[in-house]
Computed example of a mutant assay.
Amino acid sequence: MTAFSLDPGQIAWCAELRTLAAQHLRPLADKGEPGHVNRPLVAELGRLGLLSRLFTSGALDLCLMRESLAQVCTEAETALALQGLGAHPVHAYGTAAQREHWLPRVADGGAVAAFALSEPGAGSDAAALALRADEDGTGTGTGGWRLTGEKCWISNAPEADFYTVFARTAPDAGARGVTAFLVPADRPGLTGSPLDMLSPHPIGALAFDAVPVTADDVLGEPGQGFRVAMNTLNLFRPSVGAFAVGMAQAALDATLAHTARREAFGGPLKDLQTVAHQVAEMALRTEAARLMVYAAAAAYDEGASDVPRRAAMAKLLATETAQYVVDAAVQLHGARALRRGHLLEHLYREVRAPRIYEGASEVQRAVIAKELYRRTEPTRETGPA
């Protein structure tokens, strides 16, 4: 297997995923209530064995799952991705007790996970988060803290069963002063409220009023939470790109079918050179993005040293490409694409957010530049005297 092709088994698996999505997941997604966790859909993802693969597969498999599901049912793709994003820190950094309690429930769809990093004043600048973890003064000797502050723009909030929460345990220490905690939703002092967003899944705000946590709730090591967050994002950023590629492919497929049968100016739209060239450009960009996503995922699975750069490039190119492709598809379909319930109307709403979450496009460019310069040896500029 290379970074630029799939073997026959992988191709067959992707086709099987699309079939499962059409037959089992799409009907449940259609019955869901916008703005709320679709628990029957999450449970079905568990029953089909897709959630358990989040903890047994590599980055490329995650990308293939997300791309394949997104082509048929973006709601199922997002439900799967959020389970993975919220629970991956538990899988990768949790204690045996944390993993044994939560991961089987996530895998069977019985527990809904969430990744709580963003705050009202710390979105793209994740190192600036202000949620405080103050040492608990109860004198119990448990090594506890009290969480005080807010989280915002959290997917699956306020309906998740537990949150991976990043809080500041050391003031004025930047990224070095952050600790990751596993916080069950029923912890005293934790409340949440929904936000009315352009999204079919819930997004909400969380308020922490001296929420108690102990050393048993820490994910990884105290003070190492930023590393937990960034390593999780390095895994999931290429797969956000895969989600985008799946949406782009769905828009491209719809456009091919539409322009082949739609008659205008004495023949099918596909016979107009401007239309044919537009479709070719859409296909070119989609394939380029797909290859970069696969390459970034393969690099992650191989433990390459340049994963942050590759992950940022993959997410940036794929999400920007999907925006372009979906917009072009809407233009070629005309007014019918804007009718409520049309596939492209749905994709047009879905495609915008991935350019912002898990690091906005501007952040990805900053990561790419930082990684490029970090690998450049300082040289003394010389020239004529």
Rank of each mutant, 00 (worst) to 15 (best):
V72R: 08
C73N: 05
C73G: 02
C73R: 02
C73H: 00
T74S: 15
T74E: 14
E75F: 00
A76D: 06
A76L: 09
A76W: 10
T78N: 02
T78P: 13
L80W: 12
L80A: 11
L82V: 02
L85I: 14
G86S: 12
H88I: 14
H88G: 05
V90L: 15
H91Q: 02
A92Q: 04
Y93G: 00
Y93C: 11
Y93L: 09
G94A: 10
G94K: 06
G94C: 04
T95P: 10
T95H: 09
A97N: 00
R99S: 09
R99Q: 13
R99K: 15
E100S: 15
E100D: 15
W102C: 00
W102I: 06
W102V: 05
L103W: 02
P104Q: 13
P104V: 01
P104I: 01
P104C: 05
R105W: 00
V106G: 07
A107H: 00
A107E: 04
A107T: 00
D108T: 00
D108S: 06
G109I: 03
G109A: 12
G109N: 10
G109M: 13
G110W: 01
V112N: 06
A114M: 10
F115Q: 03
F115D: 03
L117Y: 03
E119G: 01
A122P: 07
S124C: 14
S124K: 14
S124A: 13
D125R: 13
D125I: 13
A126K: 14
A127R: 13
A127N: 09
A127V: 14
L129W: 12
L129T: 02
L129Y: 00
L129S: 03
A130V: 07
L131H: 05
L131V: 07
R132W: 08
D134N: 15
G137Y: 05
T138Q: 15
G139T: 06
G141M: 05
